[in-house]
Design a protein around this nucleic acid. Structure first.
Lengths: 137, 137
DNA sequence: ATGGAGCCTGTAGCAACTACAGGGTCAAGT
DNA sequence: ACTTGACCCTGTAGTTGCTACAGGCTCCAT
């Protein structure tokens, strides 16, 4: 299949597919006589793997390691578990961080009662960290 | 005060301070005879405002608008409230999104029972979106 | 044969910094 | 007086993960 078809089949931007090839995440496919890329099913599932992993927030480097493992089925699965667990931890940390931000923003927004900027509680709060309820990063 | 002192006083990287000046977020300070930047209290509070806003996740462009408001105290406060409310919404959306990811990752990680990569549930799950419990972005 | 969709390469742009390289300045110690 | 080391300067390039051209080829239908 041509790049446009692969793009539609996986919901991936064409430029992104070429980008993945350039950084070595997808193997370079065969070319037709007209120098068009020609992909097979193996390419499609690899790209699906990549996109799904990206959707789950894995970095390119993490995906590289995961792909490497999936290319070597005889290896130990522990590494994959380690990468995923670490990532899960990071997501949980990020959620906790954002929850703090949300609380702080809610407090700040809630204090606005209209009027002119000189009396604005939003702007006041931004200028003075001491007005915050909790430490945020 | 010199840039290093301002850096320590606000917990901002020196390179970041110069960057903010370059993009017009901080006004260019006076220079000493030796061409060193020399800051006053107004610079320090402006930078504090910027850093605090960044910590709360506002983009540079949002901060530009907020600073503009705080420079014009006679203007209506509604804009500041609008920016902060919109940002709060985005944070809430991001949290919801990450919660979905967390759930999916928890499911995936929980399925790993060791062994070789060929039988790895993590890798299997990454390659097949149909194994997911919910739609994620 | 001509028009438009699709493909190619290569480069530059986005956000928000961060990290040099290669040089100048200043204050303290000897 | 001189040296050492901390600090400052400019300018440019790198980071992540794409996205968006520019300028040109190829294919297929009309």
């Amino acid at each position: 299949m041509k790049i446009g078809e692969l793009s539609r089949a996986t919901g991936t931007n064409i430029e992104t597919i070429r980008y993945y090839e350039r950084i070595g995440l997808l193997p370079a496919p065969h070319r037709t006589a007209a120098n068009y890329r020609s992909y097979g099913d193996a390419h499609r599932s690899r790209l699906t793997f990549v996109r799904h992993s990206r959707d789950l927030g894995f970095t390119i480097e993490e995906i590289r390691s995961l792909l490497d493992l999936s290319d070597h089925p005889e290896r130990d699965c522990g590494e994959a578990d380690r990468i995923a667990s670490l990532h899960l931890e990071q997501v949980e940390e990020k959620i906790a961080q954002l929850a703090l931000l949300r609380d702080e923003l809610t407090r700040i927004v809630g204090r606005c009662r209209g009027g002119v900027a000189a009396d604005c509680r939003v702007i006041e709060a931004l200028g003075d960290h001491r007005l915050c309820a909790a430490e945020h990063p």
